[in-house]
Design a protein around this nucleic acid. Structure first.
Lengths: 332, 332
DNA sequence: ATAACGATTGTAATCGATTTCAATATCATA
DNA sequence: TATGATATTGAAATCGATTACAATCGTTAT
């Protein structure tokens, strides 16, 4: 069932069918109707390979993310999809597992004309080099040194806000549980800046690095609390490690937030479900998705100079810092 | 940069270049080498639109899932991707949000030759009809009435095992928190069967229906406990609602598992992180992914009769049923 | 030397759509 | 009626690869 079959059946040329399909140039109302009827009769659907080959365009974007396991990405993707729905573009999700082979493969797919561009969500630093020659937007984990369109929040400022929230509760011995990716470093910088502004001394023994997963946060908090150093607050640069830390504090029968207050970063779906619910920094994930799509779309369809965006974050105070002051049921 | 350019540069015909690209028929070692050198020199990559158009095959499978927000799917997808890596197939993830328009769109994409087949993960019952004429495997949420390849566990048996686990702990008043999708009904059937086998009376007031999210579980448990009915165990047909129930019990200062034991279904990543950690039924997600891919692959590349698979589930006992008998650190 | 054969390479058709350019139909005007 | 302008349609080239078939080359057997 091809456009030729439709043409034959309607006693027209394939050119005319194509014009109808594309609302193109001038086709008389009569023939247009005849064509549409025939198409419906035959149940014809255009072969997009043929079309895309001819048009040199697929109207598909790839969204590359490390893994769908991390629910933090879900809201970003949803934002992207919402925006895509307003256009004639489709979005395909691709897991990279931060594997170079995957990056190369998907970059090649764009060069091979299977997609028009890529939105790279939270990429590792070394991933960027594979995409230099490809329409690209980076969403999260941005870096001033990248020469491409980027959408992110101000991670340093957000970290300052998080630490200030703990300081505002009267905490003075605030530990950091951090990872060493691009925005991790910025958040660490924010932690240090906030302590300095408050006139507090920076203690190396309060800083735990290389923490990415629940277990890392658990172990880091265990070590901190058993080390004998005084700790009354913890800022974890991702919620996952904050949740691990809370679990460890619970195991040690330490009262949250009275003895130790905990704040995370990301606002995972599970952070409000946790017991105690986790205070955190909320990124405008939906907005980041929207803007990422929009910028890539504009980059490809004409009007766009390079355009980096910085969106606004928000402090979410829950039980892990303000205790019973937070109403669980209301939060649900 | 097309195959013609390579041909011109190497002073050969495009046919020969194509043969080299496809390890096809007989090309002399000398020319093969010359071609490969030229390809590398020019940095040529074949246009897959042209190739796929000619071959009438894309070597792409779509994996349709309701939303990546639910981390339960992540392990299935990972299994699919692992298996795909062993072949020359690519996998594209597509969110459906259980929206008919999405189903239609992706089914059309296969008819349009943008992909060769679809793995439908946990589809709603009404989704199937859009795919009747398309190479399809259903992964999870299977149903005897579907006429297509399916991979799943024995949901009824798994539910029986879950309830038996509670019964084994001496619980006698077991409530059900359930949703009404295909496997939800099977799990409900298992719940009833287990009670019957144990000679226990089925009490309608212990059954809460239409629960899918955390909030639903929370509200259901609240209602149960405040209703005055005696409850000493809860079986929730998905972990998300089990976690909600646990949160509610906590808010009511009810001791878990001494007063009420809770078991869920799915083994989300967060279930072991929860406080108390959640006992649950673990599905062999990776295996389901593997098998789904393999069956679709075989369906498309020849040797396959229809082939439905039932894989083995497992009971995971954690704090929410066996209390401190479960070692947290070990579980991490 | 030549026919026959296999190995290698080239020519041209093909996949299914779009689009340029040319051809025809339609209509108004002189 | 003839002319020109405009609206509508068709023929054929094109996108970039694959592949059936034909053509060429080198080698061996007669």
């Amino acid at each position: 069932m091809t456009i030729q079959d439709v043409a034959k059946q309607a006693k027209l040329s394939s050119a005319t069918i194509s014009r109808v399909l594309n609302n193109d140039s001038c086709v008389s109302a009569k023939t247009r109707e005849r064509v549409e009827r025939t198409i419906k009769e035959l149940g014809y659907v255009p072969n997009l390979l043929g079309r895309n080959l001819r048009r040199e365009k697929t109207n598909v974007f790839y969204v590359l993310l490390p893994s769908i396991e991390n629910p933090f990405y879900s809201a970003i993707v949803q934002g992207i999809e919402e925006e895509a729905r307003e256009t004639d573009y489709s979005v395909m999700l691709c897991e990279t597992y931060n594997d170079d082979k995957r990056f190369i493969k998907y970059a090649a797919a764009v060069r091979n004309k299977l997609a028009d561009g890529i939105i790279l969500v939270s990429p590792m630093r070394n991933a960027i080099r594979h995409f230099r020659d490809i329409p690209l937007v980076i969403c999260g984990e941005s870096d001033a040194s990248y020469d491409c369109i980027q959408v992110d929040i101000d991670n340093k400022l957000a970290a300052i806000d998080a630490v200030n929230h703990l300081l505002g509760l009267g905490k003075k011995n605030i530990a950091l549980i951090s990872g060493s990716y691009a925005s991790g470093s910025l958040r660490e910088a924010g932690y240090k800046a906030a302590l300095e502004s408050a006139g507090l001394e920076l203690k190396e023994e309060l800083i735990c690095k290389d923490c990415y997963h629940f277990e890392h946060g658990y172990n880091a908090a265990m070590k901190l609390m058993r080390s004998g150093v005084k700790v009354d607050g913890i800022f974890a640069t991702v919620d996952l490690t904050a949740l691990g830390a809370i679990r460890a504090l619970g195991a040690l029968n330490i009262k949250i937030p009275e003895e130790v207050a905990v704040i995370g970063f990301d606002d995972l779906m599970y952070s409000r479900m946790n017991n105690p619910s986790l205070s955190t920094i909320k990124q405008p994930c939906g907005g980041m998705g929207h803007e990422s799509f929009r910028l890539l779309y504009e980059r490809i369809n004409g009007d766009s100079g390079k355009n980096n965006l910085v969106l606004q974050h928000k402090v979410i105070a829950r039980e892990s810092t303000i205790g019973s002051g937070y109403n669980v049921e209301e939060g649900l």
